[in-house]
Design a binder for these strands. Structure first.
Lengths: 337, 337
DNA sequence: CTGAAAGCGCTTACAG
DNA sequence: CTGAAAGCGCTTACAG
């Protein structure tokens, strides 16, 4: 079938050992031999069979990423950007990225099991971490390397990146307040999601510092899609205690909120304020443009991949924690001052 | 380290052959033995080592997908949906999806080479097919299975899905014309992209049928991102022969067009008409909502995966071609009739 | 219905 | 600096 190391060795009348060592760049092969091997291998189109190498080395050089199963038919730009970031970093080290998407909680579990048990991957990158996250417990218990975007509250140590937006929430809310809005609502994600929990906490604490009232009826959970945001906003905008500032857990949700606002005849930026989180490219292009707390999604994914590569390579991590501070991007959706 | 087939065999005092055959569901193992094996394997957390199986079977049960390198920092929801569709279908057959993203043309080539030569994947799914596409030529020449969303014009046969929107373009343009717009522009993608070529062709032919003028100055190329659409629309809207109907090659581009229109003070749906293509979830939520030609992205990806699975399985394909007719979704961006 | 053995294509201690 | 050989964990013809 295709070229093997044996073919290359035969052609040069040397042992397969020498071919293997030469290609892997060890210095126990004569320079001249190495040159010859490298050229011949290239000529013959030889590339080491990955399955054989994996089996022998007991390493797959592959990282797994499973898109969480929060919503069925999603199309979140966040994930494309995240995948691209991981891919960039991994490719550079000749690692590959195995991707799948969970269609149910059950299916998600079985995917992690399958990939871990059958040595399909050397490690996992997690996101959408939950407060109590079985993935964290499971992977830790089985000694499978992983990193996460967010830290679960299971008391388990692992390397992660986290977003610290405490200060930015304060600035955001001060800004919105200064534009005359005062009845704040939080349109969040699933209640056990770390992103939800933390952002809500910062939201509350910022309200307090600004002397604003916190109304727990004005905290809603969504599936973090634009449809979720749309429905939540409808509920809020039709309620008797209608809020006039809607802070969303992500940009996607905010898109839906804008739509609901237009439908109900509210002028966004004037009658009500709306903000998002993530700083996706398209949030520039909505009408009006959305004020958001922007994070460099692809770069975060890159850094997580880098951490995981070091771990699977048994290198010492200089940092177990990466902290990202979002950038507050003020745009028209929160008023004109 | 982890459980192997040998451990299971030893525990039951049977040969590894029997374990292997029992787990693979062959009927040459006694029912009682099979039951016992299956239970024990589950108990012990045994899963066949993928590398060993791959090496032996000379099959990887993995499919490759490389996100094309058209634009650098993209975040196209299209791809998340496409990946999810492939993932669904592949997981169901216990296949996995290897994903990477090309950062340059060079890098893209080397990724295809690497995965193909080193037997990382059994086949590829291509999208964003170009008129003359080296991927098609390369994979065909090397006998590597693949399917594509779109058919290249290299005269090479391969199984593909294609979109036929001839009729829908006519209906779209008739609809826009009936709302009083007459100066049509086409905001496309890269000139050699099949999506661009075909949609432009349908656009032209529909204009002709409607007795409308085609102005080649009103055909622009973009990178198919919202930024690309924004820039193209600025150019068009500031030109002396300003068009009043902007048809976009995809929804993402149309987002940018909406933004440019608002910026220039044009009322979309009244002063100018705008339409997209794909029917992404968010196109419902723009202001105004975008008229679009909707295709079931995830389902198409599923079908492509299904075709490829059959090929790698040496089954006969009943269809070499899948034809998708988009659905015209008329919304406010093209007027109010 | 079950077993002992070969072999997939590599990598890597062990000799020389 | 180079070679012959073992072995990673499976699958599968070949015997019985």
């Amino acid at each position: 079938m295709s070229t093997t190391i044996r073919d290359v060795a035969k052609k040069l009348s040397i042992s397969i050992y020498t071919v293997s060592r030469a290609l892997d760049g060890y210095d126990d092969v004569a320079d001249q031999t190495r040159q010859l091997v490298i050229e011949t291998a290239k000529e013959m189109g030889y590339a080491p069979n990955r399955a054989a190498r994996q089996l022998r080395r007991q390493k797959t050089e592959t990282i797994g990423f499973i898109i969480p199963s929060i919503s069925k038919r999603f199309s979140e730009p966040f994930f494309t950007e995240f995948i691209a970031g991981m891919g960039d970093e991994l490719s550079a080290s000749n690692f590959d990225l195995l991707v799948s998407n969970a269609t149910s909680d059950e299916g998600e579990r079985s995917l992690y099991h399958r990939w871990a048990n059958s040595h399909k991957v050397d490690g996992f990158i997690l996101n959408r971490i939950r407060r109590h996250d079985w993935r964290v417990t499971y992977l830790k218990a089985h000694g499978i390397p992983f990193v996460g975007l967010g830290k679960s509250q299971d008391g388990i140590e692992y390397p992660y990146a986290r977003i610290d937006a405490a200060e930015q929430y304060l600035r955001l809310i001060q800004h919105i307040q200064s534009n005359g809005f005062s009845r704040f609502a939080f349109i969040g994600g699933p209640a056990d999601l770390i992103n939800h929990v933390e952002r809500l906490k910062w939201f509350k604490s910022a309200l307090k510092k600004c002397g604003l009232e916190f109304n727990s009826d004005h905290v809603l959970s969504t599936d973090m899609t634009s449809t979720g945001g749309y429905e939540a906003a409808r509920t809020l905008l039709l309620s008797p205690t209608r809020p006039d500032a809607l802070l969303c857990v992500n940009d996607q949700t905010a898109y839906g909120v804008l739509h609901a606002a237009h439908e109900q005849g509210f002028a966004v930026g004037k009658d009500i304020a709306v903000s998002g989180f993530d700083g996706l490219r398209d949030s520039d292009y909505t009408e009006p443009a959305i004020t958001t707390l922007a994070i460099p999604v692809a770069e975060i994914a890159q850094q997580l991949a880098q951490m995981l590569l070091k771990i699977t390579n048994n290198e010492v991590l200089d940092m177990q924690e990466i902290v990202i501070k979002p950038e507050l991007r003020i745009r028209a959706s929160t008023g004109h001052s």
